[in-house]
Amino acid sequence: MTHEVRGVVARAKGAPVTLETILVPDPGPGEALVKVEACGVCHTDLHYREGAINDDFPFLLGHEAAGVVEAVGEGVTEVEPGDFVILNWRAVCGQCRACLRGRPWYCFNTHNATQKMTLADGTVLSPALGIGAFADKTLVAAGQCTKVDPAAGAAVAGLLGCGVMAGFGAAMNTGNVGRGDSVAVIGCGGVGIASVMGARLAGAAKIIAVDIDPRKLEWAKNLGATHTVDSSSADPVEAIRDLTGGNGADVVIDAVGIPKTYEQAFYARDLAGTVVLVGVPSPEMRLDLPLLDVFGRGGALKSSWYGDCLPTRDFPMLIDLHLQGRIDLAAFVSEEIPLDGVEAAFEKMHHGDVLRSVVVWK
């Protein structure tokens, strides 16, 4: 059986997205059909639309999603129909060299659905991050479904599918922030704010939020930052050093991902401190640092892929912490929008007006 549903499609580089009829097959072996209940509008979706990921147009956008499993294919044991799940783009294989070394968060062979979703004319779609959740229903590998407590609500839970998890993980997993550490976060959009919250949860004593937008700095302060720096009027490196006794922060997280902010992060850390790059650069960007400075400052320069998360471990934990009132994931939801509101949400994102617009099926 084929399911005829609505989906948000990017047909060409830079072109406005369109709402189109999508054909979704029943799940085959190892696959799951998910009825989507909410999906966040993430910068990565905009990157797909702008051709900054690859040129495999047309794309079925959306990946930061939660919903209910409607059907499963042969051999699926992870989930069953009726389960409330967050979708993830790290369905670990269990067999690659990273998994076999006990590091599944680096899995080099993650699974996606084998069957293809198409437009009504049969044109094959490329689902964003192997998910494609700006659609009434989507087909994924069963391992891309992580069962969590439905009490959190879909609009909140789905955000862990990408940006919020990336930010939390950048602090807690990649940066390994510890009790009493000083942490600086450069860039206070959704990922940066989540990094602030992750640092707070990990027990950081000083959390310095850096941005050029006073609204974002206020959001950061309300959600865990102890200090803020407006880098449109102050040198962030000097400001971070001033706030850390002249030393620099133990961990500096670059949630922007451009050469200028990375260089700021590099020089704003303490000797033997850690730089974490979680903002996603574009392909043409290049970095120029004196190699002697890289050697002389020691420490670690890390990239954070998906917050180095393991969905089966991290999603339920963060949902439980939210339900206990220890973290406020709902604070990321700036607005709830219909499926045909994605293009307008991209514009709001571009202007920094929202932490997250979330498509909600009602």
Rank of each mutant, 00 (worst) to 15 (best):
D270G: 09
G298T: 02
G296R: 10
A300S: 14
A272F: 15
C309N: 09
R313T: 12
D250S: 13
D308K: 03
C309T: 06
A300N: 13
P281K: 11
R313A: 13
L310A: 05
Y306A: 01
D340E: 13
D293G: 10
A344L: 05
M317G: 00
S334V: 07
R326Y: 02
A331E: 11
N247T: 14
D308Q: 08
A331G: 11
D270M: 13
H322V: 03
G279Q: 07
G325H: 09
D288T: 15
L318S: 05
H350R: 15
T244W: 08
I258R: 01
R269N: 03
R326G: 01
G296V: 07
V275Q: 10
G273N: 05
R297Q: 12
P316K: 06
R286E: 15
S334P: 11
G257R: 04
L321N: 02
D328I: 03
G341P: 12
R286D: 14
L243E: 09
H351A: 12
K348E: 12
L318R: 04
L329W: 12
V278N: 09
A268W: 07
L318N: 07
E336K: 15
R286F: 02
K348D: 11
I327R: 03
A300M: 13
K302Q: 10
L301S: 01
Y262M: 15
E335L: 01
E263W: 01
P283N: 01
W305R: 10
P281V: 03
V294S: 07
I327N: 02
P338T: 07
D320G: 06
V251F: 12
V275W: 00
C309Q: 11
L318C: 02
L271I: 14
V280P: 07
N247W: 11
D288W: 10
A272M: 14
D320W: 00
Y306I: 00
R297C: 03
R269K: 15
G257C: 10
V275T: 14
L329H: 12
P338D: 11
S304V: 13
L289N: 11
H350C: 02
L318M: 10
R326P: 06
A255V: 08
A265W: 04
P259R: 00
E347P: 02
A255C: 07
E343F: 08
R326E: 12
G299V: 06
F332T: 04
P281S: 06
A272E: 15
D340H: 09
G299D: 03
D340W: 02
G257K: 05
G341D: 04
K260N: 10
G279L: 02
A345I: 01
G299Q: 02
G246E: 05
I327K: 04
Y267H: 14
